[in-house]
Simulated assay, not measured.
Amino acid sequence: MTGKVQAGEGYPPAVRCRGIRGATTVTENSSEAILEATREMLFILIRANGVDPEDVASAYFTTTVDLTATYPALAARQLGWYDAALLCGHEMQVPGGLPRCIRVLVHWNTGKSSKEIVHVYLRDARRLRPDRLSLPEIPWEEIEAAAKNIDFDELKYNPDGNPQNQQ
């Protein structure tokens, strides 16, 4: 036995934590506009994916720096996400970036595959999600060359905080 529980006859579907992305925009920096747009985005995200708030582990909301009137996470609380860990922050400023934008990354415990997840982009945020096939590929040789300079042993978790070779 490998220790892994397989989904199948007699077993429930394997539950994994999946990420759901969403984004929307508002026309003004007001509490009402931010909460209304965020509730709309979350409601559609919930309906499109069949999300039960009990299965939401956490959500990370960001806004562009021009939105400061309220926390978009308040909209999640208004929709009943009382026990999920919620956090807000500002999106990095990139020249030509989309203004007045609210984004979310929801960590959701589900039996769905990553291909079954529906990401929600509304209003002007629809232009944020390019077709996945149009993303540039990185040559495997370039990835291998970069990996040669990494000491993977140094990346392992060390609960004592001591250097690996001094344990």
Rank of each mutant, 00 (worst) to 15 (best):
D124W: 01
N149H: 13
I20V: 14
D66Y: 10
I44F: 00
L74Q: 15
L155M: 02
C88D: 15
T68A: 07
D55L: 07
R123Y: 01
M92V: 09
R103M: 09
G161D: 09
W81Y: 10
I143F: 00
L35Y: 05
I117N: 01
L42C: 05
D131M: 12
P12Y: 05
W81T: 01
G50C: 04
Y82C: 03
A33G: 10
E116L: 06
D160P: 04
T62A: 10
W81L: 11
A57L: 11
P95M: 08
T110P: 08
S113K: 13
A125I: 14
T38Y: 04
W108G: 01
P95V: 07
Y157M: 00
Y60A: 01
L155T: 04
I138R: 11
C88F: 13
R39G: 02
L67Y: 01
A146F: 06
P99K: 12
H107W: 02
A59C: 10
D55E: 14
D153N: 12
A48G: 01
A76G: 09
S134M: 13
R100V: 05
K148Q: 13
R39K: 15
R47Q: 15
W81M: 09
G19W: 08
G97E: 15
L128A: 00
N109Y: 11
A75Y: 08
F61W: 05
V26L: 07
